[in-house]
């Protein structure tokens, strides 16, 4: 791509504090982007859901930096709403968040440079979620290798801060909004998930798993409330993987 960029000469750049701060700020500015805007709309939807689930504003705001994975946050709300226990919630959240591991795995080689300690990487891993990951994968090669950790810290921390404010503000405003607006806010979350999930699929098995999950979730919700998400994930994901194996097997 932009071979004229002066930043592509790897590891030749100074990495003093001023330079780190400069790239931290460039990272901050990348949050103002289309993926960043979409993430805000998804958090608007989350704030509306939180309001309806009966958690307090501070609890909802607290979830943003602590969990920082929207599907996990929505699952938490879902369990709270239906009066599910800690272990059911924890298990469902754990299964829904497996995808974070491969995302971090693919980002680490880009972030790492000879100078960055593993501790820094373990700290930055907390900031990995779909949006910051998408932005980072698109832009990080324009950043000098030794400064990528500063850049990603800027990007991740500002995304969290912005969305904490969004959740707090929308939570407070939601009760005074007209029903039409509240209903539309509700639809933001499933639409963000369904499109970003489709876009992040790596292989055909993911499309099959998605279709099965969409149908199995509601069906099992009636049959085995409380374990519907777990069961849909295991059954739908398992079947998709089996199909993947059958297709790949030599004829």
């Amino acid at each position: 791509m932009s071979s004229r960029s002066p930043y592509l000469q790897e590891d030749e750049s100074p990495s003093g504090f001023a330079e780190r701060r400069r790239w931290f700020l460039i990272g901050l500015s990348k949050a103002i982007s289309v993926p960043g805007l979409i993430l805000c709309t998804a958090h608007i939807g989350f704030a509306g859901l939180a309001q309806e689930a009966g958690v307090t504003m501070w609890q909802a705001v607290f979830m943003v930096p602590v969990v920082w994975a929207l599907p996990a946050m929505v699952i938490l709300l879902g369990t709270i709403m239906t009066g599910g226990g800690l272990f059911a919630a924890a298990f469902a959240v754990m299964l829904s968040s497996v995808r974070l591991a491969p995302m971090v795995m693919s980002l680490v080689p880009e972030l790492r440079s000879g100078r960055s300690s593993r501790l820094v990487l373990y700290f930055l891993a907390h900031f990995v979620a779909v949006t910051s990951w998408v932005i980072a994968m698109e832009t990080i090669r324009q950043v000098p290798k030794s400064l990528r950790t500063s850049y990603y810290f800027g990007l991740g921390s500002v995304l969290i801060a912005i969305n904490m404010v969004v959740v707090g503000v929308v939570y407070v405003l939601a009760p005074s909004l007209p029903p039409l607006v509240v209903a539309c806010l509700y639809l933001l979350t499933p639409m963000y998930f369904v499109t970003s999930l489709w876009g992040s699929a790596r292989e055909n098995a993911a499309y099959v798993a998605m279709a099965l999950g969409l149908v199995l979730g509601p069906l099992l919700h009636r049959a085995i409330p409380g374990f519907d998400l777990l069961a849909a994930g295991l059954i739908g994901g398992g079947l998709a993987y089996l199909l993947h194996l059958v297709r790949r097997a030599p004829a």
Binding site: G48, L49, Q51, E52, A53, P71, V74, I75, G78, M81, A92, L95, S96, S97, V98, R99, A101, P102, P179, L180, V182, A183, Y186, L187, T189, P190, F193, V194, L197, A201, R202, E203, A205, A206, V208, A209, M210, A211, L212, G213, L214, V215, L216, G217, P218, L220, H221, D228, L229, L230, A232, G233, L234, I235, G236, G237, G238, A240, Y241, H244
Partner: peptide, 28 residues
């Protein structure tokens, strides 16, 4: 592939439930 499939199906189930069993004004 298996790990991603399970995670994807689980999040898809969340989407399905949000569409089929809404709360608040959307439930009308």
């Amino acid at each position: 592939v298996l790990v991603r499939s399970v995670a994807t199906a689980l999040v898809a189930a969340v989407i399905g439930n949000l569409i089929c069993f809404p709360s608040g004004p959307a439930a009308e």
